[in-house]
């Protein structure tokens, strides 16, 4: 079995006194695509932000290639960040720059490459995501799917070892969503990039995942291959994975004292 690139060990994150993540543990295995599943407020995006080092964790540890993020110096954190790529939910393109300049930014900032070489590399990355013809456009001129693809081109500009995707299919039509999924698969299979994908879109998750983790209200629920998750007998996993209307998730929502709230305790 391949060794883990990133290990999350009993990580807890507290926001304003509330545990957003409670002792989460998982391994991101090299060369695989790990999909982190969970509903809104499950803590999956927070977990991603902890793994990319954008926010600190309160206890536990995140270990990248054998070294704890906790003990990284600022320079080591920069080295770590240069070895990963992140596609944010909105694409997070810099609106004041063209698509080409967005992709070129990490190359200009972190390499000594001359401009003609950077221009060639930008074209290669944009071709990979099918946006070479749109290099000179500004982000405001792009559709949602194109923004995500441009964000992906920027994320792979420095040839990262691990790529993190935050809700890559959110808000996209089924065809564009499938295109993004295919890009994730291609980058993983052709370039050997390890991927961590945060999503709640099950079709997309089953298409791209080698392994899946399900979180619920900041707690670890289950982990396994797509087939194992499909065949799970755990009621919560079954409801989430199959999108069932009845199960522990909906029971919990309905047990919120609605009548009391509505009628002011008069029932």
């Amino acid at each position: 079995m391949s060794k883990p690139a990133i290990q999350v060990v009993d990580v807890t994150k507290i926001y304003a006194g509330a545990k957003v993540l409670d002792a989460i543990g998982l391994d991101v295995v090299e060369g695989q695509t790990l999909v982190i599943l969970g509903g809104s407020g499950s803590g999956k995006s927070t977990l991603l932000r902890l793994m990319i080092g954008n926010i600190p964790y309160d206890s536990g540890d995140i270990v990248a290639w054998g070294r704890s993020l906790h003990v990284f110096t600022p320079a080591e954190m920069d080295d770590y960040r240069r070895s990963i790529g992140v596609l944010f939910q909105s694409g997070a393109l810099f609106n004041s720059m063209s698509v080409a300049d967005n992709v070129a930014l990490p190359l200009r900032e972190h390499t000594d490459l001359p401009e003609p070489t950077i221009a060639i590399m930008v074209k290669i990355k944009l071709e990979l995501v099918g946006l070479r013809q749109h290099a000179d456009k500004m982000p405001a001129e792009l559709s949602g799917g194109m923004k995500k693809r441009a964000g992906l081109a920027r994320a792979i500009a420095l040839d990262p070892k691990v790529l993190f995707y935050d809700e890559p299919s959110a808000g996209l039509d089924p065809v564009t969503s499938a295109q993004i999924d295919q890009l994730i698969i291609d980058l993983n299979r052709k370039l050997g990039v390890t991927s961590v994908v945060v999503t709640h879109e099950m079709d997309s998750a089953f298409r791209i995942a080698d392994r899946m983790v399900l979180l619920d209200r900041g707690k670890f629920v289950a982990c396994g291959s797509p087939q194992e998750m499909r065949d799970s007998t755990d009621p919560l996993v079954r409801q989430f994975v199959h999108g069932l209307t009845e199960g522990p998730l909906t029971d919990r929502r309905m047990a919120g004292g609605y009548e009391v709230d509505l009628l002011g305790g008069g029932v």
């Binding site: 990319i52 954008n54 960040r81 990963i84 992140v86 944010f88 609106n95 930014l105």
Partner: peptide, 9 residues
């Protein structure tokens, strides 16, 4: 965008 900058070191 600020988070993206940080993520790009």
């Amino acid at each position: 965008e600020i988070e993206a900058l940080e993520a790009e070191a």
